[in-house]
Amino acid sequence: MTGWTMAEKNMLAVAAAAAPSVHNTRPWTLELGGERRVAEIYELLDRALPRHDPLGRDRLISCGAALEHVRVAANVLGNMTTTELFPDVTQSGLAGRVTATGKAEPSDADLAAHGAMSRRRSHRGPFRRTRVSTGLTARILAANRTDGVELRVVGDADAEAVANVLGHSALVLRNDGAYQRELNAWTSSVRDPLPGDGVSAATRRTATLPWVGLVRATTAVPDLPTLVERLRAELLVLVQTPDDGPADHMRAGMAVEAVWLAAVGAGLAGAVLTQPFQVRESRAGLIEALNLNGFPQILLRLGFPRHHSEER
């Protein structure tokens, strides 16, 4: 097979750029093969967030989301593909590779996911009170094709445990001066910053959990009963992996992005929360409270949007 054409390279690059990332740091670079139809995601260590993400977990989750976008775009271009994580340990920073192995018609799911990429945004506001049906939930979750990732819907019985984690983590992060300085450094002055330019300053005006993923010094933390009530009104999906290594973080990013794109295609809005799991005791407490058999990586909140309060 010949290498990528210029038009194909552009489509792959646009797809990668549309992926979500922690604090909109875009901590990856895309390398496209010359004579080979290969697309590689390299982790950018200089986009580190030492206070928010000291172990680089969220950075690799972001790289996983970008790899999922590249995989979908390559499939839409009419390719059969294989996806590998950390395929060559001699290549510093190489996190994932998509290789075209032959020709194939794109699936309806990949076409829909590709179409949703440009519409996907992080919805920081409240959802409509309309509940997501069980059938729609099942169809959305079925978009996850990544082995080694378990998706668990947070039921009403789980809501109090999750609310405790969100509330405690918010208080810790709200009072962490170093964390707040880092977040401010990655807050753009424009409403819709480009990928890699940080989060929108508009998030400063969104002040109540769980309708924000960003905890600022001014964030108002609701009391536990209020937070539980809000959580029960949303579709919350807990993304967990059996282990907690770099490959697990990449897989979590791939899985959550596949589900998020499927949700957007179905008319839903969403946002991911990873900050609470950066507080060690919160993460450990959730594992114990929900009797998890793995490691929680991401909380994806979904619902029908009420208005356009969005950012990358």
Rank of each mutant, 00 (worst) to 15 (best):
L224A: 02
W211S: 13
P210E: 00
W211D: 13
D248Q: 05
G245A: 08
L268S: 05
A263Y: 08
V239A: 07
L214S: 13
V239P: 09
G294S: 08
D248Y: 00
T274Y: 01
W211I: 07
L290V: 05
G270Q: 12
A263I: 05
A284Y: 10
T241Q: 07
P242L: 10
R280S: 13
Q240N: 10
A289C: 11
T219L: 09
A262M: 09
V279F: 01
S282T: 12
Q297Y: 00
G265K: 01
F277H: 05
R280E: 15
A252Q: 08
V272G: 13
A289P: 06
T274N: 03
I287L: 05
A255K: 12
V239E: 04
H249L: 03
L292G: 03
A220Y: 08
V272K: 11
R251N: 00
L227Q: 09
Q275H: 08
A263C: 11
M250T: 06
R232E: 15
L227N: 05
A284R: 13
P222M: 08
P296E: 03
L209W: 04
A233N: 13
R251V: 06
I287G: 02
G253A: 01
G265D: 13
A284K: 11
M250C: 10
P242W: 12
N291W: 08
G270I: 07
G294Y: 04
G253S: 04
Q240W: 02
V239M: 07
T218A: 14
Q297K: 10
P242Y: 09
V239W: 03
P222V: 05
R251L: 06
R230V: 03
A247E: 13
V237M: 06
V228A: 09
Q240P: 02
G267Y: 06
G270N: 10
L261F: 06
A255S: 15
A233Q: 13
P210G: 05
D243L: 10
W260C: 11
T226H: 15
L238H: 06
G294E: 04
A247H: 07
F277R: 01
L292H: 02
T219E: 11
L235Q: 08
R230A: 15
I298F: 02
M250V: 14
D243N: 11
T218V: 12
L290H: 07
D223C: 09
G285C: 04
W211M: 12
W260I: 04
F295L: 01
A262C: 10
V228P: 01
R230F: 14
A271N: 14
A269N: 09
Q275T: 04
V264S: 12
A233L: 13
S282H: 02
G265N: 11
Q297D: 00
V279N: 07
M254S: 10
P210Q: 01
R232K: 15
Q275F: 00
V239G: 01
L292F: 01
L290N: 09
P222D: 05
L238Q: 01
L214T: 14
P210F: 03
V279Q: 05
A284F: 06
V239N: 03
P210S: 03
L268H: 02
Q275R: 06
